[in-house]
């Protein structure tokens, strides 16, 4: 049951990414091109996604998940070294080529060689992260 829900959630997520244009790296580069031909689509995507999620957070108060038991504890929202360094690295990579991890998976089927190379490199980067994290703060990764 959990897996079935997860599959449907993944499908919705993927459909949303495709419809919103997030799987098209030109949209992302258009968003980052503030001083050029700026494309604000991404702000609409973010806005559209935050609304249902904000409602969901309200609904979690004083309840447990329908089939999942307790809600995953939120990590400390404190802005630390890792958030800044990680976001800067991610931002550089994102600006260079476009996709974040979700769209990278969602576009694997039609992204051709570019998509495959990107996804493989991304997984490589993820495999390196625990080492980098130990170096940065010595605490175990929470995810």
């Amino acid at each position: 049951m959990r897996s079935l829900v997860a599959f449907l959630v993944g499908g919705l997520f993927g459909a949303g990414l495709l419809i919103s244009g997030m799987t098209d790296t030109r949209k992302v580069q258009g968003w980052l091109d503030i001083f050029g031909d700026w494309d604000p689509t991404l702000a609409f995507v973010m806005g559209g996604a935050i609304i249902p999620m904000a409602i969901a957070w309200q609904l979690t108060k004083g309840r447990t998940a329908l089939i999942g038991g307790a809600f995953t504890a939120l990590s400390d929202p404190q802005v630390d070294r890792r958030i800044v360094i990680g976001s800067v690295l991610f931002g550089a990579g994102w600006g260079l080529s476009g996709p974040c991890p979700g769209p990278a998976i969602a576009s694997l089927s039609f992204g051709g060689l570019s998509g495959l190379v990107f996804a493989t490199a991304m997984i490589g980067g993820m495999a390196m992260a625990p080492t980098a994290n130990r170096y940065l703060d010595g605490s175990p990764q929470t995810a």
Binding site: G86, F90, G93, L96, M122, G125
Partner: peptide, 8 residues
């Protein structure tokens, strides 16, 4: 870019 995104 992939390495940076994955690591970051």
């Amino acid at each position: 870019a992939g390495l940076l995104v994955g690591l970051g």
